[in-house]
């Protein structure tokens, strides 16, 4: 059975990628499961999706804990949820990542000794972010060596049938391109047989506690600041103080309380928490907040 796990951020298309790959397997005659992991999916928040494909009936259910292929569409996930992304690597696991990091940097961060296949965003079209579904799905399809390009294209078209025709054509074109470019890796991802999960359940009887100690209780206020949601950003608002009048509209309308006021009465953006919605740019009456590309700014800081 093939067990493939996709990781990305909400909005990057990992659910769609899993469905394209699932349909492609299905058109090849496989039995398939494809699903996103349900939880707190949000635009910009870490999300995952998975595909199981086998020639036999699939009885396994739930998340994939021992993946044959891990697809990482967003390298920033390695800094925030590394353990989730890399969970369950086994001796034949292949890791596929879209990243501008060098191979040695990647190996250092991932540190698994496993084969890492990388696509540098520089080798992709400038607007590649809009096409992460066909890119990751077609690369994965190619890695298995079991999916013909015609069935991959059918999978792409089937999944995107509700969108506009020209968008389908663009998606198909990029899927074909990546499929051809990845040909040298055809068959690198292999199937793993049954994973025995049935064990003696070793039931433990928990004593009944009263609700004051048995219910999760948060005893400190405002602990959410520990979550650094700044990594969600793809664009960064920057205050141009020479234009700012200190009217604080940005502070009033920021949904995330991520803009504070300094002692001179001017706004300061808290980049550890700003999610990059850019409402502040839109509501600023003086045009004093500029939108900048987060990826470029981040690499400058590094």
């Amino acid at each position: 059975m093939y067990r493939i796990r996709f990781h990305g951020r909400g909005g990057e298309g990992m659910k769609t990628a899993s469905r394209i790959l699932g349909s492609s397997f299905f058109f090849e005659g496989f039995q398939v499961q494809d699903a996103p992991k349900y939880g707190a999916e949000r635009r910009g928040a870490p999300v995952s999706a998975y595909v199981r494909a086998d020639h036999k009936q699939i009885y396994e259910r739930g998340e994939i804990h021992k993946p044959d292929l891990i697809v990482i569409a967003d390298e920033t996930l390695l800094h925030v949820t590394r353990n989730t992304v890399l969970e369950g690597i086994h001796e034949n696991t292949v890791i596929f990542i879209i990243s501008a990091m060098s191979n040695s940097e990647l190996e250092e961060i991932i540190n698994s000794g496993k084969s890492i296949i990388k696509i540098d965003p520089a080798a992709l079209p400038e607007n590649y972010h809009r096409f992460l579904s066909p890119i990751t799905a077609s690369a994965s399809a190619c890695f298995t060596g079991k999916i013909q390009s015609s069935n991959l294209i059918r999978g792409v078209k089937d999944e995107l049938k509700t969108v506009k025709d020209d968008l389908i054509i663009e998606n198909v074109a990029i899927a074909e391109k990546i499929f051809n470019e990845m040909k040298s890796y055809s068959g690198i991802v292999t199937e793993t047989g049954e994973i025995t999960v049935l064990r003696d359940p070793q039931l433990i009887t928990l004593p009944l506690h009263n609700s004051s100690i048995a219910t999760p209780v948060i005893r400190t206020v405002s602990t959410s600041v520990k979550n650094q949601t700044g990594s969600w950003r793809t664009a960064r608002p920057v205050v141009l103080y020479e234009k700012c009048s200190g009217c604080m509209m940005c502070n009033v309308y920021c949904p995330d309380s991520a803009i504070t006021k300094n002692k001179d009465g001017f706004p300061v953006i808290d980049y550890n928490h700003c999610k990059g919605c850019l409402i502040c740019c839109e509501v600023c009456p003086s045009g004093a907040i500029r939108k900048e590309n987060e990826k470029i700014r981040r690499s400058e800081t590094v």
Partner: peptide
């Protein structure tokens, strides 16, 4: 404007009108 009673760092979507 100024300090807010609802802290940052929630996992609500960017630009959420409900959070606002």
């Amino acid at each position: 404007a100024g300090e807010h009673n609802l802290a940052s760092g929630t996992s609500i979507c960017a630009g959420c009108g409900a959070l606002e």
